[in-house]
Design a protein around this nucleic acid. Sequence first.
DNA 1: TCTGGGGTCCTAGGACCC
DNA 2: TCTGGGGTCCTAGGACCC
Length: 425
Amino acid sequence: MTSDRIALVDVNNFYVSCERVFDPRLEGRPVVVLSNNDGCVVARSAEAKALGITTGAPWFQLQAQAKAWGLVARSSNYELYGDMSARVMEVVGRFGTWQEVYSIDESFVGLLGDAAQLEATGRDIRAAVMRHVGVPVCVGVAQTKTLAKFANRIAKQNPALAGVCALDSMPAGHVHAIQERVPVSGLWGVGGRTATRLKMLGIETIADLKAADPALIRKKFSVVLQRTVMELNGTECIPHTEERVDKQQIMFSRSFSTPVTTVDGMEQVMAVYAQRGAARLNEAGLRASTMTITAGTSRFAAGEGSFPATTIRFATPTQDPIVLVRAAVAAIGQSAVPGASYLRAGVMFNGLEPLSGPEMLDVFAAPAGQPGVGDVLGEVRTKFGGQAIGLGFGGLAEPPSWSMKRELSSPKYTTEWAELPVVRA
DNA sequence: TCTGGGGTCCTAGGACCC
DNA sequence: TCTGGGGTCCTAGGACCC
């Protein structure tokens, strides 16, 4: 019987797998990839997981044992991961009747076929991605997205399945037995808070939740969890959106490598961050009607922190870096507390609209058809690299002392001519 | 000394309108 | 000045995801 099914394809330990493609010595060793500023662990190889290293573990706490464990750490290299992601998505997309890219390492694709064909297609996808990109993927196939996620989890945890699990080709009793063992928190869309509240109602496993009354769940929780219950029972409730819906917000936020303690310093930070945000707006072809700036001291320090946040509304939506930088600097100047030890800051844009949309009268805007400042900056960056040009502090060749730290980074193997891998034969 | 960054969706409540 | 229902839009906050 031919059925319409959904496959969830994701890359195992994606960041680590990308590093391994270009450095095979990492194969078989415990490897972690760190967050910005080399702060904490964001990805782990199977060997690192086996050592008990958790996601979010601070690197400074692991460093002492790293040598004894033979543990290798890499800074995150988003240029590399982004490019590898695009390659994986392109290969996976060839197999589907539709494709929705869900995250940097996951996509849902539509498959048609009977149980045996679905499973065979899963194996073909795995082989193709390994051959063309070099990273291992797992495939879960089922009737709904929630179940496809669940099947993918089974594929990952059960080595005998060799990375592919199509629920249609498993005996129903077997599937049910697994659902009776796995706690609800292992389910897509059910986090810790909801799991705790469900437990009080005696709902602990996926099987419990599947058998729950959807109407009751909606009343006691939300329409979101009700959809989960229905999806567990085979009714599709979460639509697939092939083309990315328009973004609702754009952010740029970063922690510093060293604290910033002066208002002047925070103004420098904002000048740089507002520019980075403006560049993102320009790339997306959007302008914003509000900008929210945030900053924060340590969440872990004793005493009261300072977490200024200010929203600025623009009479005319804009993506002009000069306007945005001025507004951000003025706002932080008013809200930053002198002497506070700031560790992070961010810029967020909301109320987005396309650049090509109806123009309101603004005597300072570039005349129609002429490039604005953002376009010119973007063009220079495309030709000469991201660091080539900037306004004020954003244009310094030598980055300020608080800039992000990435000491253990691999080269941008696939996106910079100067950093291409060298092969000797 | 050191603890990520970037998002989405839903809901409740307030402002405002007819 | 008070009375009333019904509706939209916006924002803040919660929960979750990778």
